[in-house]
Simulated assay, not measured.
Amino acid sequence: MFPQLNGQEAGLIQSPDSPIPWTYRFDWQTRQWKQGPDGRYVRTATYAEYLAETAKKILNTRRFRYAIYSERYGVDFLSEIGRVKTGLSLAVIRTQAEEALEAHSEIERAQVVDMKIENNRITFYLELLGSRGSTKTEVDAWQR
């Protein structure tokens, strides 16, 4: 009734020799992909850079906004940023941010160390533990 799997479990586990994941770098001021001197889009070079860039992309994307992302990608609080003091508590924002980050396959644990709110902007200070390393980063999220 059930299929038989033949093979070694060791073949399914990623080896430390496998290349680090990468993503394209984004310029958050101009809202454009960063380009190198040759015109090619710039990719992250280290695992810490990859984790930081991924966190920025997740925390600046509203859930269900883009059909290319799954329902687990992005956050819900972006539409509430202008009404934070009356409509949404900081504990809820912190929890949503940590859950959204931990839903990513490479991020094992995300902790919001501190948050700062100014106008329509929230700045997160994060500690991220990925499957291949960890990093500390700062992420600005704002209403678009």
Rank of each mutant, 00 (worst) to 15 (best):
V84L: 15
R72M: 12
Q14Y: 15
V42P: 01
S18M: 14
E9P: 08
R65W: 10
P21D: 15
Y50S: 07
Y41P: 02
A48W: 00
P37Y: 06
V75K: 07
D17C: 13
E80A: 14
D17W: 14
K57M: 13
T54E: 06
E80L: 14
L59G: 06
T86F: 12
W33S: 00
G11E: 15
L78H: 04
R31M: 10
D27Q: 04
K57Y: 07
A10G: 09
I13V: 15
A10E: 14
G39M: 05
Y47A: 06
R40L: 11
N60Y: 01
L51K: 00
A52C: 07
Y47P: 07
F77R: 07
T46V: 04
P16S: 15
D38E: 11
K56R: 13
G82E: 12
A10M: 11
I20D: 15
A55D: 03
R65N: 09
D27R: 03
T44K: 01
A48D: 12
L78W: 01
I68C: 10
R43Y: 10
Q14A: 15
V75T: 07
G36T: 04
Q35V: 08
E9Y: 09
I81L: 09
V42K: 04
E53F: 04
D17Y: 14
I13S: 13
S79T: 09
A55Q: 04
E53S: 08
W33I: 04
Y73E: 09
G36R: 07
E49L: 00
P19C: 10
A52M: 03
T54C: 11
Y73H: 11
N60A: 02
V42E: 15
R25D: 02
W33Y: 08
V42L: 14
T61I: 02
E80W: 08
R62L: 13
W33K: 01
L12Q: 15
I20K: 12
A52Y: 01
L51F: 02
K34G: 01
Q29I: 04
P16N: 15
D17L: 14
T23C: 14
G82V: 03
Y24G: 00
